[in-house]
Design a protein around this nucleic acid. Structure first.
Length: 587
RNA sequence: GCGCCUGUAGCUCAAAGGAUAGAGCAACGGACUUCUAAUCCGUGGGUUGGAGGUUCGAGUCCUCCCAGGCGUGCCA
């Protein structure tokens, strides 16, 4: 089962050997690795391969700008004293700093300290931090991008629904999640396509056609019995009404079979175009809409079943055709063709996934609702049977509970039914909806409070982040209006050194976290980390803003602060873009 | 019964096995003649569902138990 964490090993590993970007972190990591090697060569510590250590921002400021547990990990694996190992590493690193200085260079660090059980804490050299800051500006929109994917072709399938009515709110979560995930994967160097699988075949479609037909007749004043299992939603009547108006009731007296086929077909097209429009206005654009029906029509499903039988991966029993998925890790074998001769959804899905692979995709990601979780194993088993172990990664998402002011929302006022995705977006807006969907890990059920999403309050993190962006734009506007030199150029180091305030340093360091965060969020399939980060970044900016004036009489200080603020603007923009949320210039 | 997910502050949630478990909201008290107060500062708030275990170190990993959600179709 593709949990976000195991996913990291899946397509992240192997490609993630070359670390570009994140220069400070990369350089420090290398420094630590070299120190470990040196110390082991000198016999201070045993030599170890593949030391898996963490380099991170400590929670407490007293612990420096960055810290590593390398010595702790090392000591644990080698059974030596962690403090001594830490002293040894720190000593080696200090030597290197000294040697860089003696050659007249600017070392990466200004302090290296051993603390606690054996952490090594680092304080970054301020000049190097400032120099790093200039990279944010020079890379611009590309800041935060990586080349870990090596262009590996990934297909992400999400939302995928029966085209029999409007999307519901849960679909919205998958849309936001899938799209953000695709953005993230693209950002770290994968070639990503977005696909919507149209479940336009089978019982649901027939029920849909019958329901629409019944309403069509009813609206024309005919006596009809509504199908027992039919869809009762008001939208069915709306579609029927639209059809009736469109054709003037031309099919009222057509032969029942033809009438149903015709109306069903047109209703399908209407429902589909409605879905496309919903997603389009939500800013989610699919590269392909893959029709299950076409898959059947092309004979691909039947052909695949035949092939499975030939390959000995399927067999006949009790009048049905079964696939031997239990040989590949499934709990039991699964039916491909029912006793009544109709292929199962599973059979079509096998053909579908093989089709994806035949189109050249090397890794498949499906986003499914948690209610499909029993289906994952068998699908992966089927692909493994066909010789594709590990290509299918399934991300399961928990449900969305709509609330309004803390109270559960069941009914829509307008239709008397569940609130649709469209209604939600219409009420709270695209940005708030997208952002709210992405604030929680997909592993947890999401409580979406409509009232809070609309409120312009602090409970609403969308505005908080967007406000930071708008505020910076406002500063820039103010500056130009006052004739402040608004140079796009990167100030020299001398000027940047004026950024000496604590809040300025904190903000700068926060900016650098972005690169690693993008990588981790992509590889761990965790877009919600990005929302969190943006809130933290915004908080650092707001704090800075409240304590210090950007535009002042001091020309050089103004230039330096304008630059810092521009970098912040850039990272906010890049982050919001990954989420698919707009970055307004004023609010 | 079995499998998966979840359980963290009053509420909604964060935390690659790391240091004193963090944010926001809510509560209370402060800050606008200054680039947007949709902001900021301060105060209180916790046995991380429970019990064992693994180790230098556990919210995180393992075992058992409790609670909730979902699954366990010749439905899709």
């Amino acid at each position: 089962m593709g949990s976000p964490r195991s996913a990291r090993g899946k397509i992240g590993a192997g490609q993630a050997t070359v670390e570009e970007g994140a220069l400070i972190v990369k350089e420090l990591r290398k420094l630590i690795e070299e120190a470990v090697r040196e110390a082991s060569e000198k016999g201070e510590i045993p030599s170890l391969e593949d030391l898996d250590f963490v380099l991170e921002r400590p929670r407490r400021k007293a612990h420096g700008d960055l810290a590593t547990n390398a010595a702790l990990v090392l000591a644990s694996r080698a059974g030596i004293n962690p403090r001594r190992a830490a002293e040894s590493l720190a000593g080696r690193i200090r030597e290197r700093i000294a040697s860089t200085e003696s050659r007249g260079g600017t070392p990466l660090l200004s302090a290296v300290e051993v603390a606690g059980p054996g952490f090594v804490n680092f304080t970054l050299n301020r000049d190097r931090v400032l120099r790093e800051l200039t990279r944010v500006a020079s890379e611009g929109a590309a800041y935060g991008r990586w080349d870990l994917g090596g262009g590996l072709r990934v297909l992400v399938e999400f939302v995928s629904a029966n085209p029999v009515g409007p999307l519901h709110v849960g679909h919205g979560r998958w849309a936001a999640l899938g799209d953000a995930l695709c953005n993230l994967l693209e950002a770290v160097g994968f070639h990503v396509d977005r696909e919507f699988y149209l479940n336009d075949h089978g019982t649901q479609m027939e029920v849909f056609a019958a329901s629409v037909e019944a309403r069509y007749l009813e609206l024309a004043g005919r006596e009809v019995e509504f199908p027992a299992e039919g869809y009762h939603g008001a939208y069915i009547r709306e579609i029927a009404a639209a059809l009736l108006e469109e054709d003037g009731g031309r099919f009222l007296d057509a032969p029942p079979e033809e009438r149903r086929r015709e109306l069903g077909e047109r209703a399908y097209r209407m429902a589909l175009s409605h879905i496309k429009q919903s997603l389009d206005s939500f800013g989610v654009h699919f590269d392909t809409w893959f029709s299950e029906r076409e898959l059947h029509r092309s004979g691909a499903v039947e052909a695949e079943i035949r092939k499975l039988l030939e390959e000995g991966l399927a067999y006949e029993k009790e009048g049905a055709v079964w696939m031997a998925t239990s040989r590949f890790g499934d709990d039991k074998d699964r039916v491909l063709v029912r006793q009544n001769g109709a292929p199962t959804y599973f059979a079509a899905d096998i053909a579908y996934h093989l089709n994806k692979l035949s189109r050249g995709y090397q890794h498949l990601i499906n986003i499914w609702g948690a209610d499909h979780h029993g289906y994952v194993r068998r699908m992966q088993a089927a692909l493994e049977a066909k010789g594709y172990p590990g290509v299918l990664e399934v991300i399961l998402g928990q449900l969305v509970n709509l609330k309004r002011g803390g109270e559960p929302v069941r009914m829509s006022k307008r239709t008397g039914e569940m609130i649709t995705f469209d209604e939600l977006v219409a009420e709270v807006g695209k940005d708030a909806a997208r952002y709210m969907f992405l604030t929680r890990s997909q592993d947890t059920a999401l409580d979406f409070d409509i009232q809070l999403a609309v409120e312009e309050s602090m409970e609403n993190p969308v505005y908080y982040v967007q406000y930071a962006h708008a505020r910076i734009c406002s500063i820039l506007r103010y500056g130009s209006g006052r004739g402040v030199k608004m140079s796009e150029e990167i100030p020299d180091l001398e000027t940047l050194r004026l950024l000496g305030e604590e809040e300025e340093m904190d903000l700068s360091l926060k900016l650098f976290e972005f690169e690693e965060l993008v990588r981790d969020a992509a590889l761990d399939r965790a877009p919600h980390r990005l929302t969190r980060y943006l809130e933290e970044l915004a908080a650092h900016f707001h704090l800075f803003y409240n304590r210090h004036r950007v535009i002042s009489e001091d020309v050089d200080l103004t230039a330096a602060r304008l630059f810092l603020v521009r970098c912040t603007l850039q990272v906010l923009r890049n982050g919001l873009a990954l989420l698919g949320v707009s970055a307004p210039e004023s609010m």
